[in-house]
Design a binder for these strands. Structure first.
Lengths: 200, 200
DNA sequence: AGAACTTACGAACACTCTGTATGAAAGTTA
DNA sequence: TAACTTTCATACAGAGTGTTCGTAAGTTCT
């Protein structure tokens, strides 16, 4: 009986997971351009051969890392939003903003999702992938708010974009502030006020 | 008498201008990472030696390009804003937003100032340079609005950040839309509404 | 179980690109 | 015009990406 016998699917999953995890910490801490593929595979305890077998290129790995980070954050926000539920969509939006700000303050998170992603993936590709995550969430909440009669019936897409822009920049602002708590309070005041302004 | 005798200051100004101009078109059209220094100096009709004499490195050239683009846009917006003047600061803010959206729709402009700049310069450096341009403009307008009694006396810095974030993302949204006129109208509706929400 | 086949990986190579070093040319100062 | 500084051209070294090719591990078929 061989000890280390693993199925191909298991091997693939293991190396991909190791590479994505290594990429996440390294890209997050140093930025995409400053991290060489060699350091990634060293961290992941594999070789460059494995990387280029599992991913098309360095960008391909980065895309996988980005998806994973977005997945994590979106899931966390979604559960928070779900607790408030459909009863008060705009309240849920405020709560979701708070969670987003907390998570996106993590340097690794904002370096990957907000700073590097647009440049590495290209803006349209970045946004296309974002549709799947944060965008779907916000647009859903806005639709619910319309259904609940909290805001007027109007195109949600431009609102979602403006909201995402405001949230992203807010996260970066907080992340760069010395007194993060104070900065968080400041921008949340502004964001809440804007959200309220849409109320019928 | 030598025909091409130029002073050192003239030589420096000429090659720097040529390099910045070449970088502006090439970075704008293809993105920072996709443009090699060789293609830049070829376009500028100088050699790599001149580039590395005039600028510390590729990032240094990019920073100069970024500054020039910001300078141009900010100047244009400032004149628009000045026409409306201090009589109606919030009106001026709306007008400035329109000009910004028009100019930032230019692919080269948004590629440089919104997509590449944060990743290449780093977010904090990006924002530090932005202080000088768009930020100063918006904060000035907000201060004027407070002085004119249009909005409540409050910290303008977080508002400026949220506003910049909303504007930047709006510009990218418009730039990516097929029907730019319609997209512009959509986001301006949202932006105007938000601006109005701050009115006392 | 063993042979034929596919998938995953390791090591070495080729190529591109950035930044530097060194020397020449142009301009400045005395 | 001679000494000096600035600007630029060329050649070189080093780092890093992506590819190629061979080997090992796993799968399928009989």
């Amino acid at each position: 009986m061989k000890v280390n016998r693993r199925t191909q699917a298991e091997r693939t999953a293991a190396t991909r997971a190791a590479l994505v995890a290594a990429g996440r910490t390294l890209f997050g801490n140093h930025g995409y351009a400053a991290v060489g593929t060699q350091s990634i595979v060293t961290e992941a305890d594999v070789t460059r051969g494995a990387l280029y077998h599992q991913f098309k290129d360095k960008q391909g790995l980065f895309a996988a890392v980005y998806d994973q980070v977005e997945q994590d954050i979106t899931a966390e926000i979604a559960t928070q939003v779900a607790e408030i539920g459909a009863s008060d969509p705009l309240g849920a939006l405020k709560a979701g903003s708070r969670v987003f700000l907390e998570r996106a303050t993590d340097p690794a998170v904002h370096q990957i999702t907000l700073v590097d992603a647009p440049a590495v993936l290209g803006w349209s590709e970045w946004r296309a992938r974002g549709e799947e995550f944060g965008f779907a969430l916000i647009e859903g909440i806005l639709q619910a708010a319309i259904a609940a009669g909290q805001i007027a019936d109007q195109p949600v897409r431009p609102i979602a974009h403006v909201a995402i822009g405001a949230l992203d920049e807010s996260a970066l602002y907080v992340a760069a502030a010395e007194d993060k708590a104070a900065a968080t309070a400041e921008v949340l005041t502004v964001l809440d006020r804007i959200i309220d302004s849409f109320t019928i």
